[in-house]
């Protein structure tokens, strides 16, 4: 990177670090922060969509749909979510392969579960064994995102369900009195007013989502935890120009600080958003804002 990096062993500490922190290997570590941010950027809206669908289903007038929504919101209550993460990654993978197997190889006669193996025809493998490495990585990441979206969707469904119930009932009754249909009431009255009640729960969920990102590591994605462990380990002078001892502690300290900073920034942003959303609402927060301005 820098011109003085030619012979790292002769450098002073500050320059040594300047060189070390700009090597190609460490760049992997920086890129993996991008992976985490990408995961958050995709998962947050996806989970919100799952949650919205779940909450809407849970208050549906059609009983089977209602049961489906309610059990979706209930699954996450009693069981550690890390178990769900580990479960869904394999289950989704097998589910996709099973569906493809049914479509692509209808005349396959052998059972799919043979003892301790899960066997589908080659054309149904996901990704195909002929596809390049990056497809495998993207598929792994996609599975991880879907898993996150399902699990956090259940949490979001809980929050949104509560928020829909928190909208004053008189508002809905008024809308009905004006002759709005059920659908109009839902989209024009309930949904716009719901967000202010949902926001505290959703911001809590965002914090939790941030804090759940290191679990990507368990789903087999090469994320920050993976690289911190890889790069932090003792670097032998025989294999690298930048030998060092066991620095995993410092790498994880870095991650700890990164997460602390990230949650702190989110906290401040969400606080401002909450202030914006409370404006003009018939809640104690909105009332306080009105009085402060008056």
């Amino acid at each position: 990177m820098f011109s003085f990096c030619a012979d790292p062993s002769a450098l002073s500490d500050a320059r040594w670090f300047a060189c070390y922190l700009t090597t190609g290997k460490i760049a992997n570590f920086y890129l993996s922060f991008g992976t985490v941010l990408l995961l958050l950027a995709i998962t947050a809206p996806a989970a919100l969509a799952f949650g919205f669908a779940g909450a809407t289903a849970a208050r549906s007038r059609i009983a089977p749909l209602r049961w489906l929504g309610q059990s979706y919101t209930a699954i996450v209550r009693g069981v550690p979510d890390i178990a769900f993460f580990l479960f869904f990654v394999i289950a989704l993978d097998q589910g996709f392969e099973w569906i493809r197997h049914k479509i692509r190889c209808p005349d396959w006669s052998e059972p799919i579960r043979q003892g301790n193996d899960f066997v589908v025809c080659t054309a149904a493998k996901l990704p195909l064994s002929t596809s390049p490495q990056w497809v495998h990585e993207v598929y792994g990441f996609f599975l991880a995102v879907l898993t996150f979206a399902i699990v956090f969707g259940a949490f979001a469904a809980n929050v949104l369900y509560g928020a829909m119930r928190a909208v004053p009932h008189a508002q809905l009754e008024t809308a009905e009195a004006y002759g709005m249909t059920h659908r109009q009431c839902f989209w024009r009255i309930l949904i716009p007013q719901m967000w202010v009640y949902a926001l505290p729960g959703l911001s809590n969920l965002w914090m939790v989502l941030i804090k759940a990102t290191p679990l990507l590591f368990l789903l087999g994605v090469e994320d920050i935890v993976y690289w911190a462990r890889e790069l932090g380990g003792t670097a032998n002078p025989r294999f690298t120009d930048y030998p060092h001892g066991d620095w995993r502690m410092w790498f994880f300290l870095g991650l700890l600080i990164f997460y602390l900073g990230f949650t702190r920034v989110s906290e401040l942003v969400l606080q401002r958003l909450m202030n914006r959303l409370t404006r003009g609402q018939a809640t104690s927060g909105g009332e306080r804002q009105r009085k402060a301005r008056a």
Partner: peptide, 22 residues
């Protein structure tokens, strides 16, 4: 409170383990 609530438990475990190793 901020330190332990603001960071993931998973990272805390890792950090603590390597700290204890040192």
């Amino acid at each position: 409170i901020f330190l332990f609530r603001g960071s993931p438990l998973f990272i805390q475990f890792f950090f603590a383990y390597f700290l204890f190793l040192s």
